[in-house]
Design a protein around this nucleic acid. Structure first.
Lengths: 190, 190
DNA sequence: TTTGGAAATGAATATTTATTCACTTAACTT
DNA sequence: AAGTTAAGTGAATAAATATTCATTTCCAAA
């Protein structure tokens, strides 16, 4: 018998990502996903129950992927600021290299498609970062401020910087990235 | 003869806002807009050519409204930092009091509905803020950094703070707002 | 108070889009 | 190499949704 091609699931998800980025979630059609992924519409339904199911899987898939990227080169033996800086640059690099994702996760988050339990599950992925911020506060290196405020400040500024530069076709030079990091560090340091 | 009710246009726009916020742009249906606005579907087509037209009008409408709010109590006779702080608090207050807008503008921005010329027009509305930032740099009060970077940093962090707190049903106390402003000021000051 | 005309209505229609399913193809098993 | 079974296909169908339009309601002028 013919066996399921395991790569297809991710092919479909990535094709969907491209389309949402190009045309928005509101313009997403199953027939277009099939075309973009070079397969028949029917095939989509072999891998995912329906459109809603596909979108929930996609949300989790990219949240997990982004968290993996974020954790690159983080080494808890290093001093706090070294790790903080690495994390910040990882986040920015991911947002810059994958401008589609931020847009996508944003749009999905406020759509009738996403199931609440999937949203809750992704929030748990942030725990290691919360722990890291707590450690920074314990060492009195960063301001003793609410974690949600810190997280919102960090993620909001990074995403928006990546988005605006991408939208205007501008490159974020290493110098600009350094300037942006300095702003962030000045903002959070004690 | 019966005359056109001028308020209806804004009634429709506001009803649409509510719905996009509740169900996302992807879930937006003309029939629901009509229900939310307590009128018949056909009436929508008296005030707007079609769905796309309605959404473009709505985008401009709220961009303009938010800029008006932002300019409240700004007085160019005041010192730079006073105005900067007022502007920042105006922006945060608007984002907190109108959590729907940010979500909506975000979603619309990346949709097949929005016409490019409408996007370009809204970008021009930011010019007074760019001028203000330039003035701060001239007085050597803020870092001499790219305006787009500064704007992205400011708007991204504020929007995300307002959004996350609203999403988690948490109130942003005056103390937290002060802390957030201090972070921002530390970030931008020379 | 009558009447002309635009606003408002919402069931009917047109259009778009998700999903199914009868059929074909490919890979594995014996 | 024949048989078996699941993957893959895409035209056909179902479902959802935008838009129209024949009819009714309302207002203002005559």
């Amino acid at each position: 018998m013919k066996s399921k091609d395991e790569q297809k699931e991710s092919t479909i998800i990535r094709a969907t990502l491209q389309l949402i980025f190009r045309e928005g979630l509101a313009g997403l059609k199953m027939s277009n996903i099939a075309k973009q992924a070079s397969m028949a519409v029917g095939t989509l339904y072999i891998y995912f129950k329906n459109k809603e199911d596909l979108l929930n899987h996609l949300f989790l898939y990219f949240k997990r992927e982004s968290m993996t990227q974020l954790a690159q080169k983080i080494d808890f033996a290093q001093p706090f600021k070294v790790n903080f800086k690495q994390l910040w640059h990882n986040y920015l690099a991911y947002a810059v290299d994958n401008p589609e994702q931020a847009t996508l996760l944003e749009q999905l988050h406020y759509s009738p498609y996403l199931r609440p339990e999937v949203v809750a599950e992704t929030d748990k992925l942030l725990q290691p970062i919360r722990d890291m911020l707590d450690e920074g506060k314990r060492q009195m290196l960063i301001k003793n401020t609410d974690n949600e405020l810190l997280l919102a400040f960090l993620s909001g500024s990074i995403n928006q910087i990546a988005r605006r530069f991408h939208e205007n076709d501008r490159k974020l030079s290493p110098e600009l990235r350094e300037q942006a990091f300095d702003m962030t560090w000045d903002a959070v340091r004690a």
